[in-house]
Design a protein around this nucleic acid. Structure first.
Length: 818
DNA sequence: GTGCCTCGGGG
DNA sequence: GTGTACGAGGCAC
């Protein structure tokens, strides 16, 4: 036999060479060199399930289709016993010559009679390969074969055999981060077709560089001048070609940096043929834009953060500054980007912008490095590439996890629903979680309990799965799910289903890891912690997946049964808590907030232990925390209290705010500021009067124009051409005036305005901050439409009305007289 | 409830 | 490329 090499796969694609699909596995060898392992012994296939009692294998073997002078045929057919949603079927595994034949032939077969179903016909060949050969990116494999010639940027190794080699993981892929700054004057939209890239920065472990195409005096050693934007783009290529990263990363680089670079490169007819097979940077534009390079993994760290870990972050905004502050404790440089284009035009020095540019690349790099353990654990659990894990949502991660394991269970994966089916499914709703409405108020000594992984443990413990539902074997003796309507749903009690088995496996793996890391503080901790977290995230997504309209394993009955059990268990624990003398103030889905009353924290812990003795399977109630004080706020509309809207302060005086108005940019700074400060005074200082006085002071300051203009600016983005607006809000009116002044505003322009005093309608009183000479903003507008709504509900809880907040100091005094 | 509009990330 | 594309929240009606 030939040579042997060991390597970590990172990216996979295939090419048709000599009428044969050849898998290309790009990665790095154990001795740290880039490589492409080729494999040509994998055939495209799909499944046909014939109608019971019909043998159509021969008929399929002879199938031929001619279209546009091309012949499509089935190369061979295997008869194979499989399971489909838990039931045994005699399936036919139908092979074709090329991957592209699969959709064409399978589509044509639909017309044949005696076919029950056609499955697994839309699984990308590369992904199919990873599943069938049980290859997981980032883990070590040994390939046997020989080096050969291919037109690639890296050595090609033609493999006859690829086998797992131990459990080693590729821990340190070579990361390179990029960031660009573009020419975008104030009030203009970001426009790649029109405006140039003016700076480009790179950051890596041992490399930092900022390219700029205008010269100025600088002491920054990482700044390198080039003569034109075209040269800057050439540098972009050159650095990637010479640095040879495994992963190219950026913040929102799928949606911004790489598409922008591509648009500019097209303008100069520069080919971005950076793929390791010399293919070009591929930008696909839809509602969601993606940028892909063959062989080099493009990681948009923003996308991963927003899609996968946003739930575990405190911040509600996912811009680089907030995310970096929370995860890294570092911020973006405080630079007014509006001045960049002006400085560029004025030919002044750009040092602070270069520093800013490099720092952004550095932050993305550090974020990518920090999240690498989570990403690679997700890769190892799902078997998908980093590129896919980065872009998939939870439902897709669950789906691919299921598809990978379907093979081990000898299950055929169900098909994706048709559009019609999706439309039907979208219309179906069902009862969700139970919410114990909070009575608005300020509370002391709050104890929080929650069911650990409630839905996953329910699915596991009650064997909830499309393959175990209403089985005939248990029709007589099974205990049905606690549905409140008359619907009778039960799940097999004799045989564990496919989905419950997988979800319990995830839960027990996680529990085991949590046991191990209890007494581990070394460098292994980060990896194990990332692993347990990934396992949790995936397990938690199963329930949503079962009820997700586009899911292959969709089952609304399973989703319904899951929430029915959930309601049963939370109501059960609420009743038991009250029986035991705790006063329940709030409960939602899987958690329970009670006040201690005359009980102690120890009593609370004992209570959860007692509950646990009665719970089935892996279900468990946890004592989640103790908070000296907290506030629950009522919702503005509807008969319900405020779901998920509360603020707590813990024993370390840390404020935990949930569900308050997300801080959107179309709120003025003063409104955001007041809300945060009020919660702080009430919960930390326990001084309602002080909070009230604080608001009154702000209201008063607004009346007396003592609040600076900067804090009352409202920002709204123009979404379309001014003429296309039916509803002409204030920002549209301001944009119109800007346009009349000759400023080119259009879709994307950020309109900043201040509402001035007067009696006219609001849009006629909205002015640009630059047009305003004194603080003649409309105090009443800011008081009534910004500041008061931000805190009104908080004060309602404390027994104050809007009127109390609005009393001026003078009026207070007057009242004293009466 | 439906439909329209806006935001988000990036400069 | 075994093709194709957001998701949630506020507001007016």
């Amino acid at each position: 036999m030939g040579d042997k090499i060991r390597f970590f796969p990172l990216d996979v694609t295939y090419k048709v060479i000599d009428e044969k699909p050849v898998i290309h596995l790009f990665g790095r060898t154990a001795d740290n060199k880039q490589i492409c392992v080729l494999y040509d012994d994998f055939e495209p296939y799909f499944y046909v399930i014939p109608k019971r009692g019909f043998d159509i294998a021969e008929q399929l073997k002879n199938f031929k289709l001619t279209r546009n002078n091309e012949t499509y045929s089935i190369t061979r057919v295997e008869t194979i016993k499989k399971r489909y949603l838990g039931k045994e079927v005699n399936a036919l595994k139908v092979f074709t010559k090329l991957p592209r034949d699969v959709p064409i032939i399978s589509h044509e077969l639909k017309n044949l009679s005696n076919i029950e179903a056609i499955n697994e016909k839309d699984i990308l060949f590369s992904r199919r390969f990873l599943i069938d050969k049980n290859i997981t990116p980032l883990t070590l494999y040994e390939a046997e074969g020989s080096f050969g010639n291919q037109n690639l940027r890296v050595p090609a190794f033609k493999a006859e055999k690829i086998e797992a080699f131990g459990t080693e993981t590729f821990l340190k892929p070579k990361l390179l981060s990029i960031d660009i700054e573009t020419y975008t004057p104030l009030y203009r939209e970001i426009k790649p077709e029109k405006n140039p890239i003016i700076m480009l920065s790179f950051y890596a472990e041992d490399f930092e560089k900022v390219f700029v195409w205008k010269r100025f005096k600088t002491d920054l050693d990482y700044v390198e001048f080039v003569d034109s934007e075209a040269q800057l783009i050439e540098k972009f290529k050159e650095v990637i070609e010479t640095y040879k990263p495994d992963i190219l990363t950026g913040y929102f680089s799928d949606g911004f940096d790489l598409p922008y670079i591509k648009t500019r490169a097209d303008k100069y007819k520069i080919k971005l043929d950076l793929g390791l097979d010399f293919s070009e940077l591929k930008v696909s534009k839809g509602k969601v834009t993606t940028a892909q390079l063959t062989g080099i993994t493009h990681l948009d760290i923003f996308k991963f953060i927003r899609k996968i870990i946003s739930g575990t972050l405190e911040t509600e905004t996912y811009n680089l500054n907030s995310v970096a502050s929370e995860l890294l404790g570092e911020k973006k440089h405080d630079v007014d980007l509006n001045q960049l284009s002006k400085a560029w035009d004025d030919e002044t020095e750009l040092n602070e912008f270069c520093e800013y540019n490099l720092n952004d690349a550095r932050l993305s790099y550090n974020l990518a490095e920090k999240l690498m353990p989570t990403i690679s654990e997700m890769v190892k659990i799902t078997g998908l590439t980093i590129y896919d894990v980065n872009r998939f949502g939870f439902s897709q991660l669950v789906e691919w996890y299921l598809m990978r394991h379907a093979l081990n269970f000898n299950e055929i994966s169900p098909n994706k629903p048709s559009n019609d089916e999706i439309m039907k499914r979208r219309l179906l709703t069902y009862k969700g979680a139970f919410v114990f409405e909070p009575k608005p108020g300020l509370y002391d000594n709050i104890v929080v309990f929650d069911y650990r992984s409630l839905y996953p443990t329910i699915i596991g413990s009650h064997n909830i799965s499309p393959g175990t539902i209403n089985c005939s074997c248990c029709a007589e003796e099974a205990t049905p799910a606690p549905m409140e309507d008359n619907k009778k749903i039960w799940f097999c009690s004799k045989k564990k289903g496919f989905i419950p088995t997988l979800i319990e496996d995830l839960i027990t793996r996680r529990t085991r890891i949590k046991e191990i890391i209890k007494d581990q503080i070394d460098e292994k901790f980060a990896i194990l912690d990332a692993r347990q977290n990934s396992l949790k995230l995936l397990a938690n997504s199963f329930y949503g997946y079962l009820g997700f309209f586009a899911a292959r394993w969709y089952s609304i009955e399973c989703a319904q049964a899951t929430t029915a059990f959930g309601r049963y268990y939370i109501k059960d624990v609420i009743a038991k808590a009250e029986e035991s003398g705790f006063k329940v103030i709030y409960g939602d889905t899987d958690s329970l907030f009670t006040t201690l009353g005359d009980k102690t924290k120890e009593d609370a812990k004992k209570f959860s232990e007692k509950i646990n003795q009665e719970l089935p399977g892996l279900m468990e109630l946890e004592f989640d925390g103790f908070y000296p004080s907290g506030i629950f706020v009522s919702a503005k509309v509807g008969a319900y209290g405020a779901k998920k809207k509360y603020a707590l302060v813990d024993e370390n005086k840390m404020l935990k705010i949930k569900g308050f108005e997300s801080v959107r940019r179309n709120w003025s700074m003063i409104a955001k500021e007041v809300q945060e400060k009020v919660l702080e005074i009430i919960l930390k200082e326990r001084d309602n009067e002080k909070a009230l006085e604080y608001v009154k002071k702000v209201v008063n300051d607004l009346r007396n124009k003592k609040i600076i203009l900067e804090k009352v600016i409202i920002q709204t983005q123009l979404q379309k051409e001014i003429s296309d607006y039916d509803a002409r809000g204030p920002h549209v009116a301001v944009a119109q005036r800007l346009k009349n002044q000759g400023v080119n505003v259009g879709p994307g322009s950020m309109i900043r305005f201040v509402v001035l005093q007067g009696s006219d309608i609001i849009r006629n009183r909205s002015k640009l901050p630059e047009e305003i000479k004194e603080n003649n903003y409309d105090s009443d507008y800011y008081i009534n439409n910004q500041v008061i709504p931000a805190v009104e509900r908080i004060f309602n809880v404390l027994g104050y009305t809007k009127e109390d907040l609005l009393e001026t100091k003078e009026q207070t005094k007057l009242e004293g007289f009466f």
